[in-house]
Design a protein around this nucleic acid. Sequence first.
DNA 1: ATTAAATAGGATAAATTTGTCCGAAATAAG
DNA 2: CTTATTTCGGACAAATTTATCCTATTTAAT
Lengths: 144, 144
Amino acid sequence: MFSKACEYGIKATIFIAQKSLHKTRVSLKEIAAEINSPEAFTAKILQSLARNGLVDSHKGPTGGFEMNRAKMDTIKLYDIVNAIDGDNIFVGCGLGLKHCDANKPCPVHDKFVGIRENLTQMLKNTTMYELASGLDIGLTQLKR
Amino acid sequence: MFSKACEYGIKATIFIAQKSLHKTRVSLKEIAAEINSPEAFTAKILQSLARNGLVDSHKGPTGGFEMNRAKMDTIKLYDIVNAIDGDNIFVGCGLGLKHCDANKPCPVHDKFVGIRENLTQMLKNTTMYELASGLDIGLTQLKR
DNA sequence: ATTAAATAGGATAAATTTGTCCGAAATAAG
DNA sequence: CTTATTTCGGACAAATTTATCCTATTTAAT
């Protein structure tokens, strides 16, 4: 459903947010170890998220990644997915047609409308804070 | 959501089924032209679907692909997707974890359960006949 | 039998995604 | 100021997906 890059990006962001709940900055190394992802590849994804303002990064010793509480409430899962995989999953045709809509639908158009809407709304309604909290209290996991 | 191969496979199968409604066999060339797909690549996909018994193929002059009415009613969109892309989209973890379930859920597990179930049920409930009919009466399209 | 038309299948190539390497830039601390 | 630590960013490499090419096999028709 999501690209590998997006999976890593989501997991990394949730972990960063969880640590930020405790005012702790995390390094790339810690992140990659925690979410079990290739370090250099994860770095690329985090750079992109940082450039897009979805996480904050700091260079130098004691540097690393963090996310303030305001962002945790503002930024939705949707924003992470959209930043990494783009909006094709939200708006594109299920069969890859360029011009597919209610007027000129592909054979699966109507079948997909509802599911896509559910997915989009779910992602748009899910805050990073919510995901970080669940992880923080041990309700959810990022490994295995 | 689906791989390119899967998109081509779905479109090709629907077209084959539609033509079979009129007892007409279609060649690879016609299929690729109709669904706007690379011919040789489409051939690979159709070979695989034929090996799996999802479409019937015939060699030689007047040969081509077809699907009898019984299969149209039996075979679901689910079967096509499963044959080409496998079952990861139906059963795999949204974040790619190997061991993610209700007991040890990833942060998005609960959020995805419903959506995934909707998708699976929809694909399992959609027959090739239904899709072929919609195309046949001009309600849907495979191009553009 | 011969021919032509069609799918089957192996080998290969191109494109994209995933992953690695290394030097540059920033910055905290002594 | 120097050093060590960390992210940044470009170039490169590997793996996977997508796409092509060519020959073999099957089969209908003459």
